[in-house]
Design a protein around this nucleic acid. Structure first.
Lengths: 166, 166
DNA sequence: TTCTATCGGTTCCGAAACGGAACCGACATG
DNA sequence: CATGTCGGTTCCGTTTCGGAACCGATAGAA
């Protein structure tokens, strides 16, 4: 499979990866969530090669995850901001973060703790069902053909998306 | 920054990416959640180059995300299975899946629907607070130094992990 | 006016990673 | 003993990456 074919596969995971399934892209997005917005600052904080950064920012902008907003004229300079589509990636970041906290941290614990403003506790995220509110585990769902399926049957990759009862 | 330095950074997101922040790795893991376990089957379903597949399976095994389990002797053959650490990546997959469903699907809708066995509804995942159960948004948390921090201060990347009040 | 600095890139080079195809080793089967 | 299966490894040509230099528009200082 070629990498460019990914965004045409009938699998939402593959399509997501066509945008964020890249070494640098998620680190760039981490900085975006930190409110880093300028080329220079991305470069300094990440130590990324400039042309790779330019390429990733362009791809993210083309994908509608970031948008260029002018912050000065003469000389015209633009900064990169998360769009709504980009902000919606927050759960992805949070999932990766929680997994890293649990499995990749030093013996003493994670480097950073997150405290929920509303309840005051140190927290992590729990995936729950959008309809009934129960915790969603890896084997709690069945899959079925969606309206965007091609050929009227589950794509080979489909069952991976919710795990079959098999 | 070199790629090998990622797993030593004081940032759980970076550390997670040192394992799953790769083009092919998450697609291999998608197949794992689909209960694909054998070299041949990964290769056929993904169309991945064999030596790249061998490399990814080795890295995932070394990282403790997969484990090799013999399924026959003479000739000895082994298959790859998700460990507990690997199964814990399910929220990551689900987040990417939901984002793809929302932002990358065809106009008609996503290719696959997931139905919650418990409540019977077509669902997506919602991130909620592990302590109070409320929905967690991108700006609902503050960050503070964790026990695994180095140097007694928030790493530069830290605030990205929960977003500062700034 | 020229000199230097800033910001957001682009260009170029050598090294690393990738796609594709061939090959290999340990067996089993016909 | 020829062929097939499975899980790799090796090799080669192309793509991508890291690192450094360069560029274009402009501002401010000398």
């Amino acid at each position: 499979m070629r990498w460019e074919e990914l965004d045409r596969q009938p699998c939402s995971l593959a399509r997501s990866l066509s945008i964020v399934g890249d070494r640098w892209t998620l680190l760039v997005l981490r900085e975006c969530f930190l409110r880093v917005r300028r080329f220079e600052e991305f470069e300094q904080r990440l130590g990324i090669a400039r042309h790779v950064l330019a390429d990733r920012l362009k791809k993210l902008t083309d994908a509608g995850v970031l948008e260029k907003v002018p912050y000065q004229e003469r000389p015209r300079r633009e900064e990169y901001r998360l769009t709504e589509k980009g902000l919606d990636l927050y759960p992805v970041m949070l999932s990766l973060l929680d997994w890293g906290d649990k499995w990749m941290a030093e013996p003493e614990g994670p480097p950073v703790l997150r405290r929920h403003k509303a309840c005051g506790h140190v927290v992590h995220a729990v995936h729950t069902c959008s309809e009934c509110g129960e915790v969603l585990g890896a084997r709690d769902m069945t899959v079925e053909i969606g309206p965007g399926a091609k050929g009227g049957e589950l794509p080979p990759a489909a069952t991976a998306e919710g795990n079959p009862s098999k």
